[in-house]
């Protein structure tokens, strides 16, 4: 294989370009449909309302590999006023599901913190389902400097 200097330069530039675009060039990103489907499945017929749930996420995440997120749901955590579960979704990841927390009366409060991956700048969505079937939603846009999937 004898490459001329020009060919090598073109090749290197191409490779750098691929590396820069890498993720966005992949077709396998979750689309709005997949996210909406996940929301509908979780809501089970209810319409997600605003309020009661608050999602905390950084405005800008330098490293998409570990993005800290927390959710907090206003709930007495006893009797009928119980938050049963919270689902986290990311609409720009290859697969929108992130995790589902399930609480009980023994939880004392419906709060949880974890660390997640974000492939690119996108919305993180948190949904809470209460025992009476009502569903609440909050969303935050997180700007991602370096994507945290693929390799």
């Amino acid at each position: 294989m004898n490459h001329t200097r020009r060919q090598m330069l073109a090749f290197t530039a191409g490779a750098a370009g691929m590396a820069a675009f890498g993720f966005s060039a992949l077709p396998a990103l979750a689309d709005a449909d997949a996210t909406q489907k996940a929301i509908d499945e979780f809501a089970a017929g209810a319409t997600p309302a605003e309020g009661r749930i608050s999602l905390t996420a950084p405005e800008i995440a330098e490293n998409g590999n570990t993005v800290p997120i927390s959710v907090e749901v206003e709930s007495a955590m006893s009797g009928d006023d119980l938050c049963e579960s919270v689902m986290i979704l990311a609409d720009g990841n290859p697969n929108p599901d992130v995790c589902t927390f399930r609480f009980s009366e023994l939880s004392g409060a419906a709060t949880a913190t974890t660390r997640m991956r974000l492939a690119k700048t996108q919305n993180v969505i948190a949904l809470a389902r209460m025992k009476d079937g009502t569903v609440y939603m909050d969303r935050k846009e997180v700007k991602v400097t370096i994507g945290g999937c693929g390799g």
Binding site: R102, L106, T114
Partner: peptide, 22 residues
Amino acid sequence: TVFECDLDPAISANPFFEFTAK
């Protein structure tokens, strides 16, 4: 059961959780 979580691949390496218990 106090707290449960279903994890998907979007959870970071070395999964960390913080939650409450009464």
